[in-house]
Design a protein around this nucleic acid. Sequence first.
RNA 1: GGGCGGUUAGCUCAGUUGGUUAGAGCGCCACAUUGACAUUGUGGAGGUCGGUGGUUCGAAUCCACUAUCGCCCACCA
Length: 876
Amino acid sequence: MKDLPKAYSPKDYEAQLYAAWEKSGAFAPDPDPKKEPYSIMLPPPNATGTLHLGHATMLALQDILIRFKRMQGFSTLWLPGTDHAGIATQSVVEKKLQTGGMKHPRQELGREGLLAEIRSFVEQSKDTIRNQMRKMGASVDWSRERYTNSEDMNHAVNTLFKMMYEDGLIYRGDRIVNWDPKMQTTVADDELEYEEEKSPFYTFQYGPFQIGTSRPETKFGDKVVVMHPDDPRYKKFKHGEKIGPFEWINGPTTATVIKDEAIDMEFGTGVMTITPWHDATDFGIAERHKLEKVQVIDAQGRLLPIAGEFAGEKIHDARPKIVEKLKEKGLLVSTDENYMHNVAVSYRGKGKVEPQIMKQWFVDVNKPVVDWKGKKLSIKEVMQDVVNSKMIRIVPDRFEKTYFHWIDNLRDWCISRQIWWGHRIPVWYKGEEIAAGETSPGEGWVQDEDTLDTWFSSGLWTFSTLGWPEKTPDLMKFAPSSVLETGYDILFFWVARMILMSTYALRKTGFDEAHSIPFKDVYLHGLIRDIRGKKMSKSHPETCIDPLDMIEKYGTDAIRLSLIIGGTPGNDMRLYEEKIAGYRNFVNKIWNGARFVLLNLDETDAPIDSAALSRADKWILTRLNEITVQVTTLIETYQFSEAGLKVYDFFWGEYCDWYVEMSKVAKNPAVLKHVLETSLALLHPFMPFVTEALWSELRPGSQLMTHTWPTTSPAWNFPDEADEMSRIMSLVTAIRSLRSEGNVDATKKIHVIVYAHEDLQIVEDKAEVIKRLANLGQLDLSETGPKVDKALTTFVGDLEIYLPLADLLDLGAEKLRLEKEINNLEGYLKSLSTKLSNEGFTKNAPKAVLDQEQAKLADATQKLEKMKGQLGELGV
RNA sequence: GGGCGGUUAGCUCAGUUGGUUAGAGCGCCACAUUGACAUUGUGGAGGUCGGUGGUUCGAAUCCACUAUCGCCCACCA
């Protein structure tokens, strides 16, 4: 007799259990060389703050996989870590310093001073994150924790940079970049967000043309007017023709006509002037036609001397004045005040982006430098090949399409950032000379001031964390990792970049193609949304859920389940408190189910006696086998929600509601205990804490986390008895339903089909049925109340009747149903035999499939015969 | 403009190669309650699976068209 409290209190167990797991050393991979490796690299959260529900989901999913594989006997590595998140972190810290009263942190603190501030902030964040991961129950190997901006990571980054530089993959060039004047840095194309903005759209007279623009402040240097070559309105203008002089903002100007297909004839007047320095499309046109590029706005967002009287003004202030001047000159044709357009904003720093031409470092994605399957491929082609050839599988597979589309449009990647926080570019300058390397080539060399894009270093995550460029035992054993589990929102940012970096770097350092990929599977989870389906944000505190609050309130197991169940790969999921409370109830149900077992255990603790199994025992053991197979397969195919639901339903709906109830009349402690323990094992990956807590009550001194994953027991498989049992259960349900309607004594005619041992009897009078049932089980069913209710449930274990159709049925309806079913089956049989007589199918299909089809055929034939028999017996 | 996803009970969602009477949780209604559990049990009400057409013996599931909501990419002079 154990004395456990009536309700499970997570707080009393969780921290203590986690500490015990950690102490047991089982978080680290088992060194046994016979065990197959299984590894997951945790997508490193940004070391900028706290974990949100997205992180919690990711931790839960990965922990399920790791715990599952660990129990299955793999040598599992789950490597944790954090990301330094360049722009995001520097921006957060600068903002903090500014709210603290410092006006210009960069100028006031200098490079080293600001970096010191950021470092201490990051250390704090890391601690918070570690603590939260522990609370989530994440069974990560803390001894291998990594950080993207540590010294060894820096070494890996520098080594790779140098390799790429020497291969000509990294080059420096003048390119149009997305300049964030607020953070004073460039931003990558895919780090842009677009915000809708209403701003006036002006049409100006430009020589003989009318041109539209929402940005008149860029128009000072425009000397090129572009139109579509097929536009009939401008047929008389020739490509290359000079126009003017005519009056423009600051006096007369001339222009050149250029015809280019990039122009949309439908938009505005179909003519525009271009500003190559400050617009990506214009830059493209200028490159194609080898046009001059003039800078109009500086890096701080101020107009340059070319703007004449407006020089030095902020664009925002200058814009209305410029329009006013053009209006006075009679050059303003019209103004559309309601023009809606998108403005590019930095995803990280939230600053409005101004395109600029600048000297930046780029990665060439089209240069064929990778030895890949006997050819020289560009990194872009390798990225396509690994997914095309299924070396890497993306789940759900629809994201493969998205991935390919992104790669098809991939341009050279700008990797330099004008911020201080991050990996400083390992390039050194001395006059005109340039050298790449980790350390200064010597006297008088100056290192590049800029840092690398954060994704450059996180792209190395899967292998740099294992010790690359050294060929460490970990790297040899655990790369490539088994699965990358992350949100679909960073498929491009990160997943693609890891594929790029890993294939290049590992191939370059002697790994074959199969060992150069970063991971074998990619599992993408959806985003967690609030009850309204909106992204959770701090601006809506009423629907924004903090995982820590929920853990405090409902326990970790409950929140883990509520994040897993009901979610499907790649689809967003809504979360709300009631759902978490629901799973808290399940946690408590498990607790109490186990309490019952503990109270009813046999002192002898004898093993299951196969010769002394009741029908109920046989049924629950058979069901347990089925569930074990299903759950295993479902987890292996990343169907976590279904897997969790399966055990949930089994444990609550079958084990507790039926088997435990029956045990109150006639119990088999060995079976009770076995099914409970196996269920706990099956549930452990989903809800590690409560299962481990109960396990230690059932088997003191033993650890569930490292216990063997359940397998089926062929000796305890009784499909026929299980089948009978479920029919009996249906009958009981039907009788309960009658009783609950107050119909126990009713004389209403209902036909019940009861197959007794041998002879078929059709009993038309319900009262008669009740009487017979009562005789069989010595029950007085005329009584109502919980006693009868309970008795009905419990006595089915001994009920010696067989019910193929556990229902109360109208005979006419039953006949119709059977006829319909027979008709369907005949059609089914026809299609099966057609399939099996088709040579194309029989020749090409694998044997297993053929056998399966044959079995289906036999099965259906038998079923058909049975139904025909039943129809005959009905005799209606 | 290109692509992807959703639309199933009052609400939130499952339903993976088409197959008995479409499921769960929450909510709702009725009943029950001293022994595993009120964080409970039992029963019930509630759905023409967005629409139309097609394929099939059989469609929530496959195909075509369509409506609507959402997301991603590109473009926006």
